[in-house]
């Protein structure tokens, strides 16, 4: 009996050892600089994860065939980077980046060919002229037009703000007739921060958009749109008229903020079209260690439409050269007039 026990135990131990050995072999991965392997890995990662192929009518297989002949065994790291960067630029997506140790690729067509509609030095002069000015890092606020209009500039949703700080800001606007929220040149950041800010402008829980995600590797493998709700904050609410100033460089979370704000009853948007960037981006990597980022989950507006290419404003206004010369911001001035004229 003892012998049979030992045999049984030996078999178990041997089986375990084999399983672990096989596993170790399968887990083997090595640092890989081969241009071919990295090209294929980059193409495949996007093929299986990128979410806007069909919406943008990008033929990804054709893109592979276009760039593959440019890959050679002897190409330098920089040359490989340029091919991968060019291939990813075909997606026309500011959320798609290839990042190596020395280089960074980013699509900039979403803002490059549009008017800036923004002059920071002019905005700063409004702070100097206004009353009760204050700031929390990327957030600046002031009372304009003889204390009748509140103005907030939120430059990046990477910057979080506490509920107590938001309370102080809205306390500073007590008695104002309307509020200008300026998110021009806000390149995005955390949706949690943009939602926290937007939650000050509504009275009841509201569907403000939808989100989808990939459920498989196919280009059409998407989940059903899942509603995104915005809930009113427990802090000070602002339910008087609001005008949100936008330009082409409102991107990603800022684009999402505009998408949510524009459905609220007291809110209008003014300025230029936003830059889009409605795909929730994920990060992964290539065998050579380069980082790659890409949009994976489309965030839709309340009508279940994509906002990947931007959101047109309710009131289109462009920064005029004459106003720039007079150190005036056309968008702020127009917004003040509209808010003062509102009931």
């Amino acid at each position: 009996m003892r012998r049979s026990c030992i045999t049984y135990l030996s078999c178990l131990f041997f089986l375990t050892a084999v399983i672990f050995f096989c596993w170790g072999c399968e887990m083997e991965d090595e640092f890989e600089t081969s241009p071919f392997r990295n090209f294929e890995a980059c193409w495949k990662l996007l093929d299986e994860n990128y979410c806007f192929f069909d919406y943008k009518e990008v033929d990804w297989n054709a893109t592979h065939d276009k760039y593959f002949p440019m890959i050679t065994d002897s190409m330098t790291e920089h040359e490989l980077f340029q091919v991968l960067a060019s291939m990813t630029l075909e997606l026309q997506d500011g959320h798609v980046n290839v990042v190596s140790k020395y280089f960074f690729s980013s699509y900039e067509g979403w803002f490059q060919y549009y008017p800036a509609n923004f002059n920071w030095s002019i905005i700063q002069s409004y702070y100097q002229k206004g009353a009760r000015a204050g700031d929390y890092d990327e957030i600046r606020y002031v009372r304009l037009s003889s204390d009748r209009i509140g103005y907030i500039y939120y430059g990046s949703f990477n910057e979080s703000i506490l509920e107590s700080e938001l309370n102080k800001i809205f306390d500073a606007f007590e008695g104002c007739k309307g509020l200008i929220i300026d998110v021009r040149d806000n390149g995005g950041g955390s949706l949690t921060n943009s939602d926290r800010f937007a939650s000050r402008f509504l009275e009841e829980k509201t569907v403000c958009g939808y989100i989808q995600h990939k459920i498989g590797k196919g280009h059409q493998d998407f989940s059903e749109p899942f509603p995104l709700y915005l809930e009113p904050s427990d802090g000070n609410l602002w339910l008087k008229p609001v005008i949100v100033l936008t330009n082409r460089r409102c991107f990603s979370a800022a684009n999402n903020f505009v998408s949510k704000m524009r459905i609220l009853p007291n809110v209008r948007t003014l300025g230029g079209s936003t830059g889009g960037g409605s795909g929730f981006p994920f990060t992964s990597e290539l065998p050579n260690g380069w980082r790659i980022r890409f949009s994976t989950s489309p965030i839709l507006d309340v009508d279940k439409q994509h906002t990947e290419f931007g959101i047109a404003p309710d009131i289109p206004v462009t920064l005029s050269p004459d106003d720039i010369e007079r150190n005036k911001d056309t968008l702020i001035e127009t917004a003040i007039q509209l808010l003062l004229a509102s009931d």
Binding site: H213, K214, I215, D221, F226, P227, L228, F280, T296
Partner: peptide, 15 residues
């Protein structure tokens, strides 16, 4: 979690 779902969608949006 599903293939491409974000933790934002699971935990913030509640899916």
């Amino acid at each position: 979690p599903h293939y491409g779902i974000s933790y934002y969608e699971i935990f913030n949006a509640g899916n």
